[in-house]
Amino acid sequence: MLVQQIINGIVVGSVYALTAMGATLVYGIMRILDISNAGAYAIGAYVAFFFLLQTGSPLVALVTGVALTAVFGFLVQKFLYAPLMNKSPNVSLIAGIGLFIFLQDFLRLVAGPQARELNFGTLLPSIQFPSLQLTLYGTWFLILAATALLLLILWLLLNRSPIGLAWRATAQDLETAKAMGINTNRVVAFNFILGYGFAAVAGILVGILYNSVYPTMGDVPAYKMLAVIVLGGLGNPLGTVLAALVIGMAETLIGGYVGFFLPRDAIAFVVLILILLWRPQGLLGRRRSS
């Protein structure tokens, strides 16, 4: 039972990590809490759902879902956030929330309010260990593998590539980076493309895991994502992964051993508050000197 619960926790944590990664990347550079990233999560899942219906091919569905959402991220950056860049961050925050609400109702009007199945068929069979009372879903492996792979790519990109260098420079100080000859516009655009691509992968995988896509599926990620980002230390990708695992594990273990005495999200937020009381800067955030 403990092993099962720990695996449950890792899977839940991985889903959170994937979901929050897009917004973490955007925050890291732009210092904007991009709520509409949770809208991209739903958009990605719906695009995949649509292409799965049309072509019947999981691969086409996955690729188009991620690619089109990434393009969408580029457009959001270009036409929503770029014009607001010199305004107060609150303006961008509100604009992002507005876009998020718009996307939700857009999906409802276009695709209908009902939850629809995102049935990729059995990609990997589930494995049972009756003697250990353990079940491993096939989809879990998919999620764990995708999370690990994407995080590895991200790490390589950030730490071992020229883009990563430009990226880190831009994140540290946009104006100075620009003065040093870095094409910051391109860095920011790439950042959004990647951030929205991540959101789409998360949305599609969650859609497969729960066999459902629905217009309001971004609701919970929209605020859970914030908790993970804040706990991880605002814009720190590694912190986000760690925070996601902590929250996923805490929810699962408390839910599994004590029961859902409170709804699961409430448990997660109690954990968040306790940790922030202990480390106000987040798990891997640096304390700002005043």
Partner: peptide, 8 residues
């Protein structure tokens, strides 16, 4: 996500 509570 009901796996934690269903496992219990």
């Amino acid at each position: 996500e009901f796996n934690p509570v269903l496992t219990k």
